[in-house]
Write a protein that binds this DNA or RNA. Structure first.
Length: 300
RNA sequence: GGGGAGAUACCAAAGUGGCCAACUGGGGCAGACUGUAACUCUGCUGGCGCACGCCUUCGUAGGUUCGAAUCCUGCUCUCCCCA
């Protein structure tokens, strides 16, 4: 039997968790989470991690195994997951991976180029320059140092320019020269299952879930990390809005409203990302029998 | 009952004779995205062809004018103050 990675993806709130657990149980295997925020042990309620009960049913990996104070990125995820898969495939022929972080999923399925880790000092210096002199000066610098990236990058997006500059300056070689975009060969098959619902239905689920999170103590969870709000890991829907509230800028109700809206926006961005991927087989999350049947037909 | 203010596209809100299919923000829709990515960024948003263009809009019915969201009149509704 061939070894297969069954990837269950879709926007936030679509119903990945329940389905993945059912599939993993049916196949008698384990689950790898591909969610860039559920990975942080401090963020439970706001990232909708599986319940203790659910975690009991199937062994999950990459949930709560990092701290918000750690540095982490998609490349690290790629290597850690590949290592883990190497182990898991000694026991299982199929492993389920589920989550909504498109770049993390791509890193595992296709790989991403090797880039150096950026020196914090350099990063801060460039950020300072950006704040002092604006994007235009970053553009000029990039055009000089790496004309190719200048051509290719979204010049209206400061984060993307910053990234290119960081790599170029740190290594002395243009950022563009690192981007070979190889689709790395994986020693296992990949089967992508995409989940989709009617837009209204999805948005309704998101709204209900946010209310549930608040009921479950999201506000208190966020308050614990108010002091750390500058951390990137906390630049996350469900937390950043509450930080605004704690700062007295908006009411609690307004914050909750914004969490719902920003979750919808996030879901839309996820859909845009996944829509490009021609390898995805789309299903309604409640068509579980169809999905199971499809998976079984593919792994035999 | 008297006085005042106002009715603009999904919402909020500019515009007060031609440069207005109508600023701006929100929402919505579409999209980009190879590294802190639940980030960051872009476009569209009256209809039709979607480039030029054409058609129907600014409570409603009339009127003035070459020309009105913008001026005048009636009507309807909303809000505020006095009774």
């Amino acid at each position: 039997m061939q070894q297969t990675l069954i990837v269950i993806l879709g926007p936030t709130g679509i119903g990945k968790t329940d389905l993945s657990i059912d599939i993993a149980r049916e196949l008698g295997t384990e689950i790898i989470s591909s969610d860039s925020r559920q990975i942080y042990k401090e963020l439970k309620i706001g990232t909708a991690v599986p319940s203790d009960d659910q975690l009991q049913k199937v062994k999950h990996h990459f949930i709560g195994n990092k701290s918000i104070y750690d540095y982490y990125n998609a490349s690290m995820f790629e290597f850690e997951v590949l290592d883990l898969l190497n182990e898991l495939y000694k026991t299982y022929n199929q492993v389920v991976m589920t989550g909504g972080s498109g770049m993390y999923i791509n890193a595992v399925c296709d790989g991403i180029d090797e880039l150096p880790t950026i020196d914090m000092q350099l990063r801060n210096d460039l950020l300072q320059k950006y704040h002092d002199e604006g994007v235009e000066s970053l553009r000029i610098q990039l055009k000089m140092l790496d004309p190719q990236s200048y051509q290719r990058i979204d010049l209206k997006n400061p984060k993307r320019i910053l990234k290119a500059l960081e790599v170029t300056i740190q290594t002395g070689q243009p950022y563009s020269s690192f981007l070979t975009r190889p689709k790395k060969k994986r020693p296992f098959h990949i089967l992508k299952i995409g989940l989709q619902r009617e837009r209204d239905e999805l948005y309704q689920r998101i709204n209900v879930r946010v209310d549930q999170m608040v009921h479950d103590g999201l506000v208190e969870e966020a308050r614990k990390f108010f002091k750390d709000r500058h951390l990137n890991s906390l630049n996350t829907v469900g937390y950043k809005e509450l930080f605004e509230h704690f700062e007295g800028k908006i009411s609690l109700n307004k914050a909750i409203e914004l969490i719902k809206r920003n979750s919808r926006h996030y879901a839309k961005r996820q859909m845009s990302w996944f829509n490009r991927d021609q390898e995805i087989h789309w299903f309604h999350p409640e068509k579980e029998k169809n999905i199971m049947g499809f998976i079984k037909s593919k792994i035999k």
